[in-house]
Structure formats: C-alpha cells, structure tokens
Design a binder for these strands. Structure first.
Length: 420
DNA sequence: TCTGGGGTCCTAGGACCC
DNA sequence: TCTGGGGTCCTAGGACCC
C-alpha cells in the first residue's frame, strides 16, 4: 500500500510552530513579492479567502485586525520540511518526497494490520517533535491514497489517518469525491467532464476506458486506471532534475537593459549554483522576460530564447555570460518588464561531460570551475558575498517585496554554524 | 499602487529524410 | 490543369502538479 503524508496548511503551520500565539487565528502566507495568498489556516479558509487571491484584495482585513499575514520564508519551510521527512524516513521502507509538504511512503512489506496503528503513531510523533500537523491517506495506488488523504484531513473523527482498502470503501470514497478533486484531472478538465455527466470520481471510474482515452488521452487513462486500483504512477527514481529555473517578479517594473542585466546575472548565477549542488551541468541556457500581463493598457512582450553551449557547463561565469548573450538577443527597449527568469536544460552529470575536440578553452573552463567552487564556499551562508562584476552589489532576491516576514528562527542558527 | 515560482509530461506541428 | 507517403526527431506550448 501507499501512505500519502501531507502537512496540513504547511506554511501556516511552520509560522505557528515558532509563534504559538497564531494558533486558532486566521492566518495566510503570501507568495514571493507579497503577491498572492499561497497558504491558509482553516480559520482563513472559513472566511472565504481563496488560494491564489492577490494580497491587495484582502489587505483591508489585515488593516482591520481580522487577518494575520506573513511573507513567505522558504528557508524556514525547507528546514522544517527536512525535519518532518527525516521522521517519515524512519518508518517507511521507501520514501518518495513529492513536494515540500508531501511524501509517499511505499509500505509494501508492512503487514496491512499494522498500517493504521503505525501511521497513527507517526501523526502524533511528527506533531510532537516538529510542531507540524500531518494527515495520512492509505490505499493501493497513489491516486487513491490522495483521495484517502482528503478524507483524513476533512473529518476530525479519523484523527489524521484514513485507510481505503476494500472495494466497498473505494466505491464509497469515490462517490463522495467531486471529479475536480481527483489528482491529475485539473480545474480545466473538471467542467468538461461535469458537462458530460461525470460529477464524481465514481462516475469517472465507471466510464469505459475508450471513452476516457478519446477525451483525455493517455494521461486520463492513467488516472482512470489508478482509480480502479491499478498502479500506473511509477515510483520516482532518485534521478536528477531535468531542468532548473530561477525567476522572479519585480516589486517595480524595469525598463532598462542595465538593470535587467543585473537581475538576469543573479538568476543565472543561482541556476549555476543549483547545478553544482546537484552535481550536474547544463548544455542549454534560456532566458525569458515578461511585461506585466495585468496591465492591459501597456504594450505586452514575452520573449524567450536560448543558446546551446559547446560543452555542458555549471560554472557561474559560463552560465552568466551565456544568459547575458541571450538577454541581449531578446531585449527590446520601450517595454516595462515585470518578471524575468533563467532556465537551464539538457542537463547531464558533471562527471560524464565529454571535453570538446578543440581543447583550446579547457584552461578557461577549469579556471571558471575553480572560481565557482570558491564562490560556493564563501557564499554558503546565503549572504552572496562573492559575486561577478555584472552582478554588482546585487542579490537575486533584491527588489522583491517582503514586508511581513517573521523571524529567521532556524536560519540564524544555521549561520552560526557556518561562521564557526 | 498592488496579481508567485519551480517542476514534469504530453502533443501538435514543422523540419528533414528517403 | 495535375505536385506522394511515411517515418523520425525536435521544439514550443499547454496542462498538470505543489
């Protein structure tokens, strides 16, 4: 069986772990740049605040003292996530970390009779040791485990654990699950299915597979099979990422190439750092810049372009200079830019890189790699002390709004360790 | 005034080949 | 007058996830 562990209202729970006074209060956490609501406590959900709401639409509630808000603090959330995951790894034969707040435990080999009590104990332990409340859904396939997880969250009586392990329970659960809540269907697909008379997950599961194939392609059939109890979503192997993206929206719009150069240098530098951390290198470097899509009164421009390197690279100088070359290609004056990003693709393991036949630049490359290693060591505190000249005094998080940030509870501790 | 970021997979269509 | 057919590979864009 699979047990899907999901942290409840994760970002809010992280804030509460260090500020217990927030318990019982309506709280929301905002995306980068204080843009949208990306996490809500149960109390703020009950107030009718929807996921993804732009902050300016609920700011009046904050000003009136009816809602508490926090800017996102991803270093804190990443740290707490790692603590939760390490507790799960102690009990799961195989653990697949699916996102910052979710993990599939492959429980094959654990006796069915022991599953529930094991998971109930785990819910209590994670809460006690990390302060984070979690829910666990247990079933034969990942998609059914997701369904079970919804029930574990929604009904207090389950005490955080719901098992769906018989045909009768599966039928019952699917009949109570709106089609739009099924993992893999999506908000675009749901209205079409509803129009065709498919209101619940059970309606969907009872359609013939050809019907599903014709309407939704192979991905639809995969979801359909999973609901029948047939495993289709493979366990992720421990593979490296196939693409890495660093992008940000800006607090204020940018028009000049100089300032974009600064930002793109930083995004590219961050991508290079991520590559080195993964032990990989990228052969293609792409850059995109976006105008503000909400400002219909202004000209719109969304170019994206990329360059292919002779040899896959992970050094900061190489990735940055490639990105700046692409930026010059796509940049047009006269537009106000709101967002930019760098994407590196065609990723390979660093140790499998073939040197080019023409070795004339291998010395430069070696030098760049050594420079990057030094940068990683000096910058490991997260302060970005060492930068390229194109990055000037910049930090890739500069120019980003973050007005409601809580304390750096775990990060300051990390920095002490680094200094030592 | 103010609207996130980082991934994966699938598919349609174009380029190219014989 | 009249202009094939079948295959592969690559890419951009869309849909989905959290």
């Amino acid at each position: 069986m699979y047990a899907l562990v999901d942290c409840n209202n994760f970002f809010v729970s992280c804030e509460r772990a260090f500020q217990p006074a927030l318990e019982g209060c309506p709280v929301v956490v905002l995306s980068n740049n204080d843009g949208c609501v990306v996490a809500r406590s149960n109390e703020s959900k009950e107030m009718g605040i929807k996921m993804g709401t732009p902050f300016f639409k609920v700011k009046h509630l904050v000003d009136q003292g009816k809602l508490i808000v926090r800017s996102s603090n991803y270093t804190l959330y990443g740290d707490l996530s790692a603590r939760v995951m390490s507790l799960l790894a102690e009990v799961a034969p195989k653990l697949e970390v699916y996102s910052i707040d979710e993990a599939f435990m492959n429980m094959d080999g654990v006796r069915d009779a022991d599953l529930r009590s094991l998971c109930s104990a785990l819910v209590k332990k994670v809460r006690r040791w990390t302060g984070i409340p979690v829910s666990i859904g247990i079933a034969d396939t990942k998609t059914l485990a997701k369904v079970a997880n919804h029930f574990a969250k929604r009904y207090k009586g389950y005490k955080g654990v719901c098992v769906i392990d018989t045909p009768q329970k599966i039928r019952k659960a699917l009949s109570l699950t709106p089609i739009g809540d099924v993992w893999g269907i999506g908000w675009r697909g749901a209205p079409k299915l509803e129009a065709a008379g498919v209101k619940t997950a059970l309606d969907f599961a009872e359609r013939p597979s050809e019907w599903v194939r014709g309407r939704m392609g192979v991905t639809g059939v995969r979801t359909w099979s999973e609901l029948q109890g047939i495993r289709m979503v493979e366990d992720e192997k421990d593979e490296k990422r196939k693409s890495i993206c660093t992008s940000r929206s800006f607090a204020n719009m940018i028009t000049g190439l100089d300032e974009l150069t600064l930002r793109v240098s930083d995004f590219a530098g961050k991508c290079a750092e991520k590559l080195r951390k993964d032990g990989t290198a990228a052969r293609t470097v792409g850059v995109f810049i976006h105008t503000n899509r909400f400002r219909e009164d202004l000209g719109q421009y969304y170019p994206m372009a990329s360059v292919r390197l002779d040899v896959p690279a992970s050094s900061t100088p190489e990735i940055v200079s490639a990105a700046l070359g692409v930026l010059k290609m796509v940049y047009r004056p006269g537009f106000e830019y709101k967002r930019a990003g760098v994407i590196v693709t065609d990723i390979v393991d660093s140790d499998s890189i073939q040197q080019t036949l023409f070795g004339f630049d291998s010395e430069t490359r070696d030098r760049d790699d050594r420079i990057s290693r030094v940068m990683d060591i000096v910058n490991s505190s997260g302060k970005n002390t060492l930068r390229l000249a194109t990055q000037r005094g910049g930090h890739y998080a500069d120019g980003i709004r973050r007005e409601y940030c809580s304390g750096l509870y775990t990060t300051s501790w990390n920095e002490l360790i680094q200094v030592r």
